[in-house]
């Protein structure tokens, strides 16, 4: 599905990605993990063509995609922060994105699932942060894309919506789609992820299943395994 080759990206003096290679072949949920500033969002944005790398190439379904734009109709993206034009209503925004993507999907099921029907005619500027995130989720899952990229999808959601979101992710996985998710909520990863990609200082530190990571670090659960990696990292830097 996605292959990334030798990706290098720095912002000024700061090196964010330092030769990242990975391939996601199989379908399922892939969690991209790593400490703050490890380049998770940068990788996702590079796949989407929003960040332009200094070196390297991204392949989606075997085709190089840097500088292209049509491949993006294969990808649905949920950004970290949701903000929309203030003076449009939710209904208009949904219509706009549908219009841009040239698709006529029916979003009413999703709107009901997240309880957005009463907000449909409200202006986007009057919505709370959590409600905007729900709109964002509807916009992402509305289209039938084989690849979904979710950047911190749980931000600002109430517990009920969180459950709906998890169900939605599971459903999409069962439809045979690939989901690339970044999150800091470890039990979400344990529950959902088929595969983990762990980034550390701009490099892939680990790629495999949750179980393999626990075995590698000799820890009983994911949280401790991750903590162990951080600890090792700090010790390495000391030496």
């Amino acid at each position: 599905m996605i292959r990334i080759e030798n990706l290098h990206k720095g912002f000024g003096k700061l090196k964010v990605l330092d030769g990242v290679d990975f391939e996601i072949g199989s379908q399922g949920v892939v969690a991209v993990l790593g400490p703050n500033g490890s380049g998770k969002t940068t990788i996702l944005k590079t796949i989407l063509g929003m960040v332009i790398p200094q070196e390297g190439q991204v392949y989606v379904k075997g085709d190089p995609v840097l500088g292209e734009y049509t491949y993006r109709d294969q990808i649905a993206y949920l950004p970290q922060i949701a903000r929309f034009p203030d003076n449009l209503s939710v209904r208009e925004l949904i219509a706009m994105i549908k219009n841009i993507r040239g698709s006529s999907r029916d979003e009413s099921e999703l709107v009901d699932r997240f309880g957005l029907r009463p907000s449909l005619n409200k202006k986007l500027s009057s919505l709370s942060g959590g409600t905007k995130q729900k709109v964002n989720i509807v916009l992402t899952f509305m289209f039938d894309c084989p690849l979904l990229i979710l950047d911190e999808p749980t931000a600002g959601l109430d517990p009920v919506s969180l459950i709906s979101l998890k169900e939605l992710i599971v459903e999409e996985r069962e439809k045979g789609k690939t989901l690339l998710i970044t999150t800091h909520i470890m039990n979400l990863v344990e529950e959902l992820a088929d595969q983990i990609i762990f980034l550390l200082e701009g490099k892939i530190y680990f790629q495999g299943t949750v179980k393999e990571l626990e075995e590698k670090t000799g820890q009983p659960d994911l949280e401790h395994a991750i903590a162990q990696i951080f600890k090792n990292d700090v010790e390495d830097t000391k030496i």
């Binding site: 989407l48 063509g49 929003m50 734009y69 049509t70 491949y71 993006r72 109709d73 990808i75 993206y77 950004p79 922060i81 949701a82 903000r83 929309f84 034009p85 203030d86 994105i97 841009i100 993507r101 916009l139």
Partner: peptide, 17 residues
């Protein structure tokens, strides 16, 4: 400046920059 995040959303759509 205020449409920055929305621009990001648009950039993720299949449209030319």
């Amino acid at each position: 400046y205020s449409a920055r995040e929305f621009t990001e959303l648009l950039l993720a759509q299949p449209i030319k920059r």
